[in-house]
């Protein structure tokens, strides 16, 4: 267990370091100057120099990177070049949107995918199965931003049930805030659910073919009981693994969906910061995302290991 934790800790540190180097180098190499972005087309050389000094851009890149990394080790994510505010504050403000959004879409997609997968496996080769597979095919093929626009047209413009975008803030109350998150979460959940439903179906069918299921059936256990009591618990392992992998897609999808719904989340912050060449914010957000993805994958591994004793026995 300790070796596992150490290995994971090392992976985490390495991933975070690599991500920060790549982000820093990329933003350094592509054209663009945050000071020029701020001051625009009438900027004079002296004002640009004054602003660059104010932003701390008047030192060589390596020194700037080390300065940032040094701050990070002390727990300081730095100050945004554009917004002139601590990155930690900006991230915290945005997390209260993105985290509930991600959780909500995870809950929605799992809640839809597992019953759909069960239905498909139970009705293999029949109408229900084809319907689920069809939904999965379409759900995977449709980009979430397109689904997002469709949802806005139907539920905001047409029916007026949900706002077309924006976020009132949690201080406006739980329901108004939640209401603003439902359509975006749904837009993210549909492609997610499509993939998960497929994986659940396949995993269930694989399990249903195994010896212990046949034994259970032979002993007279009912179809439904076998499916729910014997096959599903075993099939959940691959589902959980895919769910963990899906998280990075969820993050990428959130950038797009947050832009369509103008949600002030982490994805939108990242998108705007790249446009503004706000390297400090971009580094902070990417670092956070890298850490989250590594941690979630570690969690999935632990969960799988706990549920399935075989890898432990082998090692």
């Amino acid at each position: 267990m300790l070796a596992f934790a150490l290995r994971r800790g090392l992976t985490l540190a390495l991933t975070a370091w690599l991500a920060s180097v790549v982000v820093f180098a990329a933003l350094e190499l592509i054209p663009g100057d945050p000071a020029l972005m701020m001051l625009g087309v009438n900027a004079q050389p002296d004002t640009l120099a004054a602003l660059r000094a104010q932003m701390g851009l008047d030192v060589p890149p390596l020194e700037r990177y080390l300065r940032w990394a040094g701050g990070l080790l002390r727990g300081d994510l730095g100050t945004s070049l554009t917004y002139a505010r601590p990155v930690a504050d900006l991230v915290a403000e945005r997390l209260v949107v993105t985290l509930p959004l991600a959780l909500l879409s995870l809950v929605m997609s799992t809640a839809a995918a597992i019953p759909l997968g069960l239905l498909a496996a139970a009705r293999r080769g029949r109408g229900g199965d084809w319907a689920v597979l069809g939904f999965a095919q379409i759900g995977v093929a449709l980009p979430s931003f397109w689904i997002a626009i469709l949802l806005i047209l139907v539920f905001s413009v047409g029916l007026g049930w949900f706002p077309a975008g924006g976020f009132p803030g949690w201080e406006a109350g739980v329901w108004p805030a939640l209401r603003a998150l439902i359509l975006p979460a749904l837009a993210l959940a549909i492609p997610e659910a499509a993939i998960l439903a497929r994986v659940t179906r396949t995993a269930l069918l694989d399990t249903l073919g195994e010896d212990h299921i046949r034994t259970a059936r032979a002993k007279g256990v009912g179809r439904a009981a076998v499916l729910l009591g014997h096959a599903l618990p075993n099939a959940l392992l691959p589902v959980a693994t895919v769910l963990g992998l899906q998280l990075s897609f969820l993050v990428a999808g959130a950038v797009v969906v947050e832009n369509v719904f103008t949600l002030p989340g982490l994805g939108r912050l990242l998108y705007q910061a790249i446009g503004q060449r706000d390297v400090i914010v971009v580094q902070g957000v990417v670092l956070l995302l890298a850490v989250v993805v590594v941690l979630v994958n570690a969690l999935v591994d632990i969960a799988c290991a706990a549920a399935d004793p075989r890898p432990r026995a082998l090692s």
Partner: peptide, 22 residues
């Protein structure tokens, strides 16, 4: 026919997923 069924089900799946939350 398979595709027609699939498309129909997919379109139905959207409101089905959303209904409890509305």
């Amino acid at each position: 026919r398979r595709w027609a069924v699939a498309a129909g089900m997919a379109l139905m799946a959207v409101p089905v997923m959303a209904v409890p939350l509305m």
